[in-house]
């Protein structure tokens, strides 16, 4: 193995692990003010919004590809499908779309 690459990997590992681990240590025993507890409870929904949009529209050069995948997933989820079914529905719909193109 190339030494420089190994050092790079270790460095990447450390700077990735620290932000993941520190909150558990820093906030483990402290009771945050209610406002910030509320903010942290909001984070998952906000994060999901930001993780999905706008990136999903740019998964392929063809923006329509992302739009169709988005629509398929939202429809399946809206009808109450479980997560795996939502994933499969989006993949299947896009496979059909690619075949037609």
């Amino acid at each position: 193995m190339n030494n420089a690459i190994v050092w790079m990997i270790l460095g990447m590992g450390i700077v990735t692990y620290l932000p993941r681990m520190l909150p558990f240590v820093l906030f483990g025993r402290v009771e945050l003010p209610p406002f910030w507890q509320g903010v942290l409870k909001n984070v998952p929904y906000a994060a999901l919004g930001a993780l999905i949009i706008p990136d999903i529209f740019f998964i392929q050069d063809d923006v329509l590809f992302g739009v169709i995948g988005f629509a398929a997933a939202v429809t399946a989820a809206w009808l109450g499908a479980n997560v795996i079914v939502v994933v499969l529905a989006a993949v299947v719909v896009l496979s059909c779309y690619s075949m037609l193109m």
Binding site: L48, L51, F70, A90
Partner: peptide, 27 residues
């Protein structure tokens, strides 16, 4: 072609996780 259509998988998973919450609570 499968690779292409599977690139949507994780986004679809995020949508599958988020939508039930959207239906439940306006916030």
């Amino acid at each position: 072609s499968l690779q292409e259509s599977m690139s949507v998988a994780l986004y679809a998973m995020f949508i599958g996780l988020l939508v039930p919450a959207l239906k439940k609570e306006r916030k």
